[in-house]
C-alpha cells in the first residue's frame, strides 16, 4: 500500500493528504487529550505535579540531547566531539555569565561554525 503511495503520488495525491492528516492529527492528539484530562486533575504545588514536571522536563531534554548526539541533515557528518564541545562550552559560558540565554545560544553556534569551517 505504501509502495503504491510512493510510486503513484501524483495520481493519488488526496490519499497522501489523508495519511498525513489522519496519522498526524489523530495519532498525536490522542495523547494530548489524555494529557489534558490528566492535567485537569493535577493540583498546583501537588506532589503529582512535581513528578509530571520532572518527567516532562526529562523527556524534552532527552529529545534535545539526541538532536546534538544524533543529528540529521548536514550535521550528521560532523564529528561528535565538535557538537558536544560546542554545546558544553556554550553551557559553561552561559553559567559563567549569569545565565544569559543569548550567551548560551550564540557561543555554541560560533564554536560549531568555526569548527565546521576549519575541518
Amino acid at each position: 500500500m505504501a509502495n503504491e503511495i510512493a510510486g503513484n503520488m501524483e495520481g493519488e495525491w488526496w490519499w497522501t493528504y489523508l495519511v498525513i492528516v489522519v496519522a498526524g492529527f489523530v495519532a498525536t492528539d490522542f495523547w494530548r487529550w489524555l494529557g489534558v484530562l490528566a492535567g485537569n486533575r493535577l493540583k498546583e504545588n501537588s506532589e503529582a505535579l512535581y513528578w509530571v514536571r520532572a518527567v516532562a522536563t526529562a523527556l524534552v531534554m532527552a529529545v534535545t540531547a539526541k538532536l546534538i548526539v544524533f543529528p540529521t541533515g548536514s550535521l550528521a557528518h560532523s564529528p561528535l566531539w565538535l557538537r558536544l564541545g560546542a554545546a558544553g562550552l556554550g553551557f559553561a559560558a552561559f553559567l559563567l555569565t549569569g545565565q544569559r540565554v543569548i550567551v548560551g545560544v550564540t557561543v555554541p553556534i560560533i564554536v560549531l561554525m568555526a569548527g565546521l569551517l576549519l575541518l
Binding site: 522536563t57 524534552v60 546534538i68 543529528p71 550535521l75 552561559f94 555554541p108 561554525m113
Partner: peptide, 17 residues
Amino acid sequence: GALFMLTPVYFISSIWA
C-alpha cells in the same frame, strides 16, 4: 548545520534559566 544546532542549544540554556 548552525540552524539545526540552534534548537537544542536554545532549549538547554532557556530551560535551565
